[in-house]
């Protein structure tokens, strides 16, 4: 076991944890507007963590540059997609869940 391998496994574990938390959040939160929070944040960082872990495992090569491009791409598109989604929900007139309402 080299040090870089251990560091990369650490990143992979954190990324995995964040993705599982994002999935639980998408199931548990009460409405679209609050479900956007785990989908927009935890999913983005979890993915980025896994790709950074793979980058550290790989070392410097064309493969790790490709991984870096995917990470940058995800950091631009994922918040944009969630913003488009919540914008469409707002335009359709969905009311946000408020404290005290029922959960579904």
């Amino acid at each position: 076991m080299v040090v870089t391998t251990i560091i990369s496994y650490l990143f992979l574990a954190v990324g995995c944890f964040l993705i599982v938390v994002a999935s639980i959040g998408i199931i548990r939160f009460p409405d679209v507007y609050s479900r956007i929070h785990p989908a927009g944040k935890s999913d983005t960082l979890g993915q980025a963590m896994i790709f950074i872990g793979l980058m550290i495992y790989e070392g410097l090569s064309f493969v790790s540059i490709k991984l870096l491009i995917i990470v940058i791409f995800i950091f631009i598109t994922n918040p944009t997609a969630t913003h488009a989604l919540v914008n469409a929900a707002h335009a359709a007139g969905l009311k946000p869940w408020e404290k005290g309402d029922d959960r579904n």
Partner: peptide, 14 residues
């Protein structure tokens, strides 16, 4: 807009 979405507890709607 993207920064608001990525930072603690807030999401841009419009």
């Amino acid at each position: 807009a993207n920064s608001i979405t990525l930072t603690p507890g807030t999401v841009t709607i419009v």
